[in-house]
Design a binder for these strands. Sequence first.
DNA 1: GCAACATATGTTATCGCTAACAATTGTGAT
DNA 2: ATCACAATTGTTAGCGATAACATATGTTGC
Lengths: 339, 339
Amino acid sequence: MVTIVDVAKRANVSTMTVSRVINHAASVSDATRARVLLAMRELNYVPNSIARSLVSGRTHTIGLIIADLTNSFFTTLARGAEDAAHKHLHRLVICNHDDDIDKERTYIEALISARVDGLIITPAGNDSVENLKIIQQHGIPFIFVDRIVHSIKADHVVGDSMSGAYELTSHLLRQGHSHIGIVSGPLNIHTASERLKGYQAALAEFGAEVRQELVLYMPYGPGADTAVPELDQQIRGLLSQNPAPTAIFALNNVIAVQVLRSLRRLGLAVPDDVALACFEEVDPYELMHLDISTAIQPAYAFGEESVNILFRRIDDPDKPFESVVLKPRLQLWPSHRKG
Amino acid sequence: MVTIVDVAKRANVSTMTVSRVINHAASVSDATRARVLLAMRELNYVPNSIARSLVSGRTHTIGLIIADLTNSFFTTLARGAEDAAHKHLHRLVICNHDDDIDKERTYIEALISARVDGLIITPAGNDSVENLKIIQQHGIPFIFVDRIVHSIKADHVVGDSMSGAYELTSHLLRQGHSHIGIVSGPLNIHTASERLKGYQAALAEFGAEVRQELVLYMPYGPGADTAVPELDQQIRGLLSQNPAPTAIFALNNVIAVQVLRSLRRLGLAVPDDVALACFEEVDPYELMHLDISTAIQPAYAFGEESVNILFRRIDDPDKPFESVVLKPRLQLWPSHRKG
DNA sequence: GCAACATATGTTATCGCTAACAATTGTGAT
DNA sequence: ATCACAATTGTTAGCGATAACATATGTTGC
């Protein structure tokens, strides 16, 4: 591999002069600069940023730890982050923890070892605290995206899960659905507990009963992409409660797809047999004519904003924390069948 | 930041001994090892892999350059690559070139500078040759995924675009559609030209006329996600040819979504008014009851296989090139309306 | 012509770690 | 007790770049 020494020799200058040319430093004569540039071109020299990082302590790399890249919400978020990082001349290292604390820890340590300039993280759950403390101990600037962990204070970009869920549930109630089933995720995940709260708040507000037997739980993401065998049974159980729910609220897009498939297997149509609402991260359904009321989050902005805030944090480590709450856009469909 | 020197001091040994403990090298007494491990734990020491890379020349990082992370095909591919890289204890740096040669070049240089151990690339187009030569000049092991560039020989994992397109077109022809429109992508992209060839081959085989006026072109990916204003007009133009096509073949998933939206705006139903076939990279439509015949590619395997082959290449730079062609899975729907 | 300073270039040390070799200690065979 | 050799630990140099300081030119003004 060609190094700065090779270029220096060929251009008949010291390595320092080459370094100056690379870094556009002043005080290099035009003649010398030209000679060095020529040598660089002739040798196909590309500076070794590893070596540069060792000296400067900066890697121009940002770590992005998310739940699952195949979830379209995170995909779009990642793309937003990538574009923003690119503007700052930084590279993005993307890691998926699949809501698994141990996997999250492995990645955090790898990224610390790689000396990323900063870290954007969707914590795997409330138990991520220990993992997050490791980041803090190493003084690496980081920001929460999508999910927070209450005991750790940091910048964050999140959606308004609570009010989004409240609105979706209210909508169903207004449509005459007085009994609404909900398929929740693990409650140790911030967005899941918030959305459940929003659902309950809406029920309370409308004087509807909060019935524990109308709440199902399933994984939030990983593995959920494959069929969930028991789900059909659970959904059937849910719908045979007395009084039976006439609508179902799915806590996120992955869950919604599972529920939709399950309903289909059970021969039930949406929304004619059962109305469906979903806290959905993007909107592929729009295209499909499916009448599913959704709270659509600006996923791209989640990623973009996170990166921008992270860079502000890097520039000024002591500034007060920023808290950005992005409202979901509601897309409400009338249900065809009333309670 | 804690370094190996701090640990060495605390454990009262030389840095070399600490290094030996970190790297599980033999010939460290149990007592010393214990002392070092304790010091490491007490100081929260995490080895600096930047420094390690500078010495070893390996970064444990793989570059993945794709067209667009928000395209579900590439998302799933990336996830497959990430999982495989993780198994090899490597990190993945993901870059999107949006089918733009200059952007591709920028990323390639950045990744060379970062001294990635290898590179997986979906070339932006046939003009990527110069960019790819840069990779070769630097002796960085790389592999093509999804698309190849003929003038550059390298390992590759691609789909069978030609036969997939042939099959889809044949299916439409068998359904009685004797005039089939096609919305193609830029022909300097390998998969686009291959799929067009497959379409033409099928027409020829069935004795159907290849009509140039039934071929539309649009971008393959970037920007295509937003509305294409002229598309409605073009589609309308396409459908008003004489004789009019009764089916449309969309060359990839992004194009299919555009066409679908456009047809919807024009008030045309699929497949009742116009049948649709699509070289689709994954299968969200399956869920949606839409009768679109698709050639579904095993995107996850694309990524996974690429990584595995890349590591074999790294281990043995002189072995013969591997060529993996993954067949798409055909999902063929009967059309409701016959030519 | 020469001090005084700007401009251009070079030298040395260092970032954190490890390869290669060196030194020390301990062990068993004779 | 002594030598040969293995096991353990240390020393030095260097990966490729740059910061900080040093030196060599050129330029200006009087």
